[in-house]
Design a binder for these strands. Structure first.
Lengths: 99, 99
DNA sequence: GAAATTGTTCCACAATTAGTTAACTTTGTA
DNA sequence: TACAAAGTTAACTAATTGTGGAACAATTTC
Protein backbone atom coordinates (compact mmCIF):
# COMPACT_ATOMS: atom_id res chain seq x y z
CA UNK A 1 0.00 0.00 0.00
CA UNK A 2 2.86 2.32 -0.78
CA UNK A 3 2.21 5.74 -2.16
CA UNK A 4 -1.41 5.84 -1.15
CA UNK A 5 -3.19 7.74 1.55
CA UNK A 6 -6.02 6.16 3.36
CA UNK A 7 -8.79 6.69 5.80
CA UNK A 8 -9.46 3.78 8.04
CA UNK A 9 -11.97 3.30 10.83
CA UNK A 10 -13.68 5.56 13.29
CA UNK A 11 -11.36 4.50 16.02
CA UNK A 12 -8.30 5.76 14.23
CA UNK A 13 -9.89 8.99 13.07
CA UNK A 14 -11.09 9.80 16.50
CA UNK A 15 -7.87 8.93 18.21
CA UNK A 16 -5.94 10.94 15.69
CA UNK A 17 -8.24 13.91 16.09
CA UNK A 18 -9.27 13.90 19.70
CA UNK A 19 -7.09 11.44 21.52
CA UNK A 20 -8.71 8.74 23.58
CA UNK A 21 -12.29 9.64 24.32
CA UNK A 22 -15.10 7.86 26.02
CA UNK A 23 -17.86 6.17 24.07
CA UNK A 24 -20.40 8.72 25.29
CA UNK A 25 -18.52 11.52 23.62
CA UNK A 26 -17.84 9.40 20.57
CA UNK A 27 -20.98 9.79 18.53
CA UNK A 28 -21.07 13.54 18.60
CA UNK A 29 -17.60 13.67 17.12
CA UNK A 30 -17.89 10.89 14.64
CA UNK A 31 -19.24 12.50 11.53
CA UNK A 32 -17.22 15.64 12.07
CA UNK A 33 -14.04 13.68 12.60
CA UNK A 34 -14.60 11.69 9.44
CA UNK A 35 -15.35 14.55 7.16
CA UNK A 36 -12.45 16.42 8.65
CA UNK A 37 -10.03 13.65 7.83
CA UNK A 38 -11.36 13.47 4.30
CA UNK A 39 -10.86 17.21 4.06
CA UNK A 40 -7.30 16.83 5.25
CA UNK A 41 -6.61 14.27 2.57
CA UNK A 42 -8.20 16.48 -0.05
CA UNK A 43 -5.98 19.35 0.97
CA UNK A 44 -2.85 17.19 0.90
CA UNK A 45 -3.66 15.84 -2.53
CA UNK A 46 -4.59 19.25 -3.87
CA UNK A 47 -1.32 20.77 -2.71
CA UNK A 48 0.65 17.87 -4.16
CA UNK A 49 -1.11 18.54 -7.43
CA UNK A 50 -0.07 22.19 -7.12
CA UNK A 51 -3.58 23.54 -7.38
CA UNK A 52 -5.27 26.38 -5.57
CA UNK A 53 -8.73 25.87 -4.11
CA UNK A 54 -10.07 27.99 -6.92
CA UNK A 55 -8.38 25.92 -9.62
CA UNK A 56 -9.72 22.71 -8.16
CA UNK A 57 -13.15 24.29 -7.87
CA UNK A 58 -13.09 25.25 -11.53
CA UNK A 59 -12.24 21.71 -12.56
CA UNK A 60 -15.35 20.29 -10.98
CA UNK A 61 -17.63 23.26 -11.54
CA UNK A 62 -17.74 24.51 -7.98
CA UNK A 63 -16.63 27.60 -6.09
CA UNK A 64 -13.53 27.95 -3.97
CA UNK A 65 -15.65 28.65 -0.91
CA UNK A 66 -17.12 25.19 -1.18
CA UNK A 67 -13.71 23.55 -1.45
CA UNK A 68 -12.64 25.41 1.65
CA UNK A 69 -15.64 24.15 3.56
CA UNK A 70 -14.95 20.57 2.58
CA UNK A 71 -11.25 20.78 3.39
CA UNK A 72 -12.02 22.12 6.83
CA UNK A 73 -14.63 19.48 7.53
CA UNK A 74 -17.46 21.97 7.81
CA UNK A 75 -19.81 19.68 5.99
CA UNK A 76 -20.49 16.03 5.50
CA UNK A 77 -20.22 15.12 1.84
CA UNK A 78 -22.02 12.67 -0.36
CA UNK A 79 -20.34 9.70 -1.99
CA UNK A 80 -20.72 11.21 -5.42
CA UNK A 81 -19.02 14.38 -4.20
CA UNK A 82 -16.14 12.30 -2.88
CA UNK A 83 -15.61 10.76 -6.29
CA UNK A 84 -16.10 14.03 -8.05
CA UNK A 85 -13.46 15.75 -5.95
CA UNK A 86 -10.77 13.09 -6.01
CA UNK A 87 -11.29 11.31 -9.29
CA UNK A 88 -12.67 14.00 -11.52
CA UNK A 89 -10.90 16.91 -9.85
CA UNK A 90 -7.55 15.43 -8.95
CA UNK A 91 -7.32 12.38 -11.18
CA UNK A 92 -6.90 10.10 -8.20
CA UNK A 93 -8.30 6.64 -7.76
CA UNK A 94 -10.61 5.93 -4.89
CA UNK A 95 -11.05 2.52 -3.38
CA UNK A 96 -13.69 1.88 -0.78
CA UNK A 97 -12.90 -1.40 0.87
CA UNK A 98 -15.19 -3.21 3.25
CA UNK A 99 -13.64 -5.98 5.28
CA UNK B 1 -6.90 -8.38 -0.11
CA UNK B 2 -8.55 -11.65 0.67
CA UNK B 3 -11.92 -11.77 2.30
CA UNK B 4 -12.77 -8.16 1.56
CA UNK B 5 -15.18 -6.61 -0.88
CA UNK B 6 -14.32 -3.42 -2.56
CA UNK B 7 -15.55 -0.66 -4.72
CA UNK B 8 -13.02 0.70 -7.11
CA UNK B 9 -13.23 3.40 -9.74
CA UNK B 10 -15.93 4.75 -11.97
CA UNK B 11 -14.65 2.82 -14.90
CA UNK B 12 -15.18 -0.51 -13.23
CA UNK B 13 -18.56 0.32 -11.79
CA UNK B 14 -19.84 1.55 -15.06
CA UNK B 15 -18.48 -1.31 -17.07
CA UNK B 16 -19.91 -3.75 -14.59
CA UNK B 17 -23.28 -2.06 -14.65
CA UNK B 18 -23.73 -0.83 -18.15
CA UNK B 19 -21.00 -2.37 -20.25
CA UNK B 20 -18.82 -0.13 -22.34
CA UNK B 21 -20.42 3.25 -22.77
CA UNK B 22 -19.33 6.47 -24.35
CA UNK B 23 -18.05 9.36 -22.32
CA UNK B 24 -21.13 11.43 -23.17
CA UNK B 25 -23.38 8.93 -21.49
CA UNK B 26 -20.95 8.50 -18.64
CA UNK B 27 -21.78 11.40 -16.37
CA UNK B 28 -25.47 10.74 -16.20
CA UNK B 29 -24.82 7.24 -14.94
CA UNK B 30 -21.96 7.94 -12.62
CA UNK B 31 -23.58 8.74 -9.33
CA UNK B 32 -26.33 6.22 -9.82
CA UNK B 33 -23.87 3.51 -10.70
CA UNK B 34 -21.79 4.24 -7.64
CA UNK B 35 -24.56 4.25 -5.10
CA UNK B 36 -25.95 1.15 -6.70
CA UNK B 37 -22.69 -0.75 -6.23
CA UNK B 38 -22.53 0.40 -2.64
CA UNK B 39 -26.07 -0.82 -2.21
CA UNK B 40 -25.10 -4.18 -3.65
CA UNK B 41 -22.27 -4.50 -1.18
CA UNK B 42 -24.54 -3.53 1.66
CA UNK B 43 -27.02 -6.19 0.69
CA UNK B 44 -24.31 -8.83 0.41
CA UNK B 45 -22.87 -7.98 3.79
CA UNK B 46 -26.28 -7.78 5.42
CA UNK B 47 -27.24 -11.22 4.15
CA UNK B 48 -23.94 -12.66 5.26
CA UNK B 49 -24.66 -11.24 8.69
CA UNK B 50 -28.06 -12.93 8.56
CA UNK B 51 -30.01 -9.75 9.13
CA UNK B 52 -33.25 -8.54 7.64
CA UNK B 53 -33.51 -4.99 6.38
CA UNK B 54 -35.62 -4.21 9.42
CA UNK B 55 -33.05 -5.61 11.84
CA UNK B 56 -30.28 -3.61 10.25
CA UNK B 57 -32.49 -0.55 10.29
CA UNK B 58 -33.14 -0.97 14.00
CA UNK B 59 -29.43 -1.20 14.71
CA UNK B 60 -28.74 2.19 13.24
CA UNK B 61 -32.02 3.82 14.17
CA UNK B 62 -33.53 3.91 10.70
CA UNK B 63 -36.48 2.35 8.96
CA UNK B 64 -36.47 -0.64 6.66
CA UNK B 65 -37.79 1.47 3.80
CA UNK B 66 -34.62 3.50 3.89
CA UNK B 67 -32.38 0.44 3.85
CA UNK B 68 -34.26 -0.80 0.83
CA UNK B 69 -33.72 2.43 -1.00
CA UNK B 70 -30.02 2.43 -0.28
CA UNK B 71 -29.57 -1.19 -1.31
CA UNK B 72 -31.30 -0.51 -4.58
CA UNK B 73 -29.26 2.59 -5.29
CA UNK B 74 -32.25 4.90 -5.22
CA UNK B 75 -30.33 7.55 -3.36
CA UNK B 76 -26.87 8.93 -2.99
CA UNK B 77 -25.61 8.64 0.57
CA UNK B 78 -23.36 10.74 2.75
CA UNK B 79 -20.02 9.59 4.05
CA UNK B 80 -21.32 9.44 7.58
CA UNK B 81 -24.16 7.22 6.44
CA UNK B 82 -21.68 4.89 4.76
CA UNK B 83 -19.85 4.46 8.05
CA UNK B 84 -23.04 4.23 10.01
CA UNK B 85 -24.35 1.42 7.84
CA UNK B 86 -21.24 -0.69 7.53
CA UNK B 87 -19.34 -0.05 10.74
CA UNK B 88 -22.06 0.68 13.22
CA UNK B 89 -24.70 -1.49 11.62
CA UNK B 90 -22.70 -4.45 10.41
CA UNK B 91 -19.50 -4.24 12.41
CA UNK B 92 -17.41 -4.03 9.27
CA UNK B 93 -14.32 -1.98 8.71
CA UNK B 94 -14.29 0.60 5.96
CA UNK B 95 -11.15 1.77 4.26
CA UNK B 96 -11.23 4.65 1.86
CA UNK B 97 -8.00 4.61 -0.06
CA UNK B 98 -6.84 7.35 -2.35
CA UNK B 99 -3.99 6.51 -4.67
C1' DG C 1 -53.41 -21.81 -0.84
C1' DA C 2 -53.35 -18.92 3.32
C1' DA C 3 -50.66 -16.58 6.57
C1' DA C 4 -46.62 -14.47 7.95
C1' DT C 5 -42.44 -12.45 6.95
C1' DT C 6 -39.58 -9.69 4.22
C1' DG C 7 -38.80 -6.27 0.86
C1' DT C 8 -40.34 -2.31 -2.23
C1' DT C 9 -42.56 1.92 -3.47
C1' DC C 10 -44.91 6.20 -2.70
C1' DC C 11 -45.88 10.44 -0.43
C1' DA C 12 -45.08 13.90 2.80
C1' DC C 13 -41.97 16.58 5.75
C1' DA C 14 -37.59 17.78 8.26
C1' DA C 15 -32.80 18.38 8.09
C1' DT C 16 -28.69 18.90 5.63
C1' DT C 17 -25.74 19.31 1.58
C1' DA C 18 -24.72 21.75 -2.61
C1' DG C 19 -24.27 26.01 -4.86
C1' DT C 20 -23.45 31.06 -4.94
C1' DT C 21 -22.09 35.80 -3.73
C1' DA C 22 -19.74 38.93 -1.12
C1' DA C 23 -17.04 40.47 2.59
C1' DC C 24 -13.33 39.47 5.44
C1' DT C 25 -8.72 37.34 6.90
C1' DT C 26 -4.45 35.35 6.11
C1' DT C 27 -0.34 34.66 3.55
C1' DG C 28 3.20 35.79 0.43
C1' DT C 29 5.87 39.19 -1.97
C1' DA C 30 7.55 43.41 -4.17
C1' DT D 1 4.08 48.86 4.36
C1' DA D 2 1.16 48.05 0.60
C1' DC D 3 -0.56 45.10 -2.75
C1' DA D 4 -2.07 40.75 -4.65
C1' DA D 5 -3.25 36.09 -4.21
C1' DA D 6 -5.20 32.47 -1.61
C1' DG D 7 -8.19 30.96 1.80
C1' DT D 8 -12.10 31.45 5.22
C1' DT D 9 -16.60 32.59 6.76
C1' DA D 10 -21.46 34.11 6.73
C1' DA D 11 -25.85 34.31 4.71
C1' DC D 12 -29.09 32.79 1.66
C1' DT D 13 -31.47 29.66 -1.87
C1' DA D 14 -32.17 25.37 -4.17
C1' DA D 15 -31.73 20.59 -4.32
C1' DT D 16 -31.32 16.31 -2.08
C1' DT D 17 -30.80 13.13 1.72
C1' DG D 18 -32.81 11.36 5.73
C1' DT D 19 -36.97 10.04 8.28
C1' DG D 20 -41.74 8.09 8.80
C1' DG D 21 -45.87 5.75 7.82
C1' DA D 22 -48.69 3.15 5.10
C1' DA D 23 -49.92 0.45 1.28
C1' DC D 24 -48.45 -2.85 -1.82
C1' DA D 25 -45.56 -6.80 -3.81
C1' DA D 26 -42.76 -10.69 -3.29
C1' DT D 27 -41.03 -14.40 -0.81
C1' DT D 28 -41.07 -17.96 2.65
C1' DT D 29 -43.32 -21.07 5.71
C1' DC D 30 -46.98 -23.73 7.42
Amino acid sequence: MKNSKHITTFEEHLTRQYGQIGSEKRTEFESKAKSFVIGELLKEERLEANLTQEELADKIGAKKSYISRVENGKTDIQISTLFRLFEFGLGKRINIIIE
